[in-house]
Design a protein around this nucleic acid. Sequence first.
DNA 1: TTGTATGCGTTATCAG
DNA 2: CTGATAACGCATACAA
Lengths: 334, 334
Amino acid sequence: MTAGRPTIRHVAERAGVSLKTVSRVINDEPNVAEPTAARVNAAIAELGFRRNDLARSLRHGRSSATLGLVIEDVANPFYSAITQAVENVARERGFMVIAGSCSEDPELERDLVQALLRRRVDALVLVPAAASHDWLAAEQTPVVFLDRPPVGMEADAVVLDNAGGARLAVEHLLAHGHERIACVADPEELVTASERVAGYRAALSAAGIEPDPRLVRTDVRDPEHSQAIVAELLALPETIRPTALFTGNNRHTVGALRALRGHARELALVGFDDFELADLLATPTTVVRHDSHRMGVEAAQLVFARLDGDEDPPRRVVLPTELVPRGSGEVPPP
Amino acid sequence: MTAGRPTIRHVAERAGVSLKTVSRVINDEPNVAEPTAARVNAAIAELGFRRNDLARSLRHGRSSATLGLVIEDVANPFYSAITQAVENVARERGFMVIAGSCSEDPELERDLVQALLRRRVDALVLVPAAASHDWLAAEQTPVVFLDRPPVGMEADAVVLDNAGGARLAVEHLLAHGHERIACVADPEELVTASERVAGYRAALSAAGIEPDPRLVRTDVRDPEHSQAIVAELLALPETIRPTALFTGNNRHTVGALRALRGHARELALVGFDDFELADLLATPTTVVRHDSHRMGVEAAQLVFARLDGDEDPPRRVVLPTELVPRGSGEVPPP
DNA sequence: TTGTATGCGTTATCAG
DNA sequence: CTGATAACGCATACAA
């Protein structure tokens, strides 16, 4: 489709100089006489010439100045914040970002990663969907894992203090007098989910409470489903019914909020992940907050450190979480 | 950084065949004997060879299978929905997307576009920030404008029925008995803003109401600022003070909501753009809704139509809007 | 200050 | 069925 684009050869002919001279002008190299440069620039303007960066990066050892980013879904605010951050850091270094959403599908993830490698991205930022990435281990392209640690290979990673955040949430509910605290989270195959559930359990144990298995639901992914599950929890007999709820991520929190509408004040709620407008809801929502933008920044910085030649053993950056009380988590038990 | 990657030459040597044979195997071309193919595939696996798509697209007339996308800010849900849509359509065609956010900065936009053209993207989807794009007119790369129509060049565009949507909003407020209706919108240099303000004025005029200039604020961009402006409006003397408010986009709506917190029920509100959780707010928010995901799909389809050889004159797709009553827009005047 | 020859990794052409 | 050779657009080494 790039038919008939002018090349430096055309520019050279038009300006009556050699290829190399044009090349020099384009790349601001020294040693080119003022009038010659002027002629070349004129030719460039007249022809509408634009350097072909694909050809340029073909030369040995040259980088494509491109980062690959594979996430779950750009439309999720958590991931779009990450995308924004990676993009910004990349831009400062003159890099562009090719991003792809893999919808938690390991096969699609692998396809995306391979397409990116074929395009010779200089490095990869990856929110892993697959259970293992041994197939990436032999690759020489630097990879930084985001949100979930690498399995099956060694690599840098930026993750959250998931267990700590979950503990904060549950301890907060305990401090407000709750004992029957339910948990709605992703399947525990996901490390983030299992760590958050572990934090939930740890907080309860530390308080001498044995978690009721009927209140721990880790079999759900989409908000519609968690809405249904919270409705189920609300419908339990009074002796079993939870008085408080911990939701394992922003989507589950949204689902829970929908289920709770109408049932107002019947259930205390603390959710993992902050979200816009949480403070403007009918019951402002208490959350475990972290800085998703910063996750992206840290990941991008690790990437560039590697590209700059850092040979240290893989690093792991763990970002903190913090509890933001807004109302929904401070509701006392009935 | 792509040092020492195996090339088809290495594969060829290892398999004891020629370059072309390897190429044939890689591209599933016919006319290669079974055992030969097997030897080549073995060599590919052993060496961890991956085709270099940069070199591939260097060949004359070959496409890079890449789309460029320039938006204002990925972190804004409106744009991330668009990004998701463009990406999905692109994937179906085996294309990837290089996206960049330009923060409404015309210079940055131009830099991004030129970087994308240097990378020989096959086409461009552009939410224009600059006032004119005459500098793009001579380019042979297809461009589709999104959300705002092209100025200074001819090109396809996908836009919203901005005036119609604004009319819907204001007519709704009028129908509920309001006469002093304020408007908070982006500066009118932005076509989207000026069209929405025009719709606002048209609806008032049709009702025989002369808009009070003190109630029309089109000098703002970020939510913090619109929060302040709505606070000003609320502080006006009772004879002037608006009883209803139309906000020109999702960010202004959020700002207004913050200003209104506490002042509950003092001001009816209809906002342009729907947003998640609008229905779960303290006062569920009435909005003018449109399908931002579909905008992205339509734009991507126009792009591929052009890449498939469509030579028709530039098309303009106008997507409809719809009013979603949720409560905040049905508050009667005091 | 300017130019020539060569290579980057792939595909296309045309010959064996 | 297979292979040698020439592009693709640019940059690098080395002359002139």
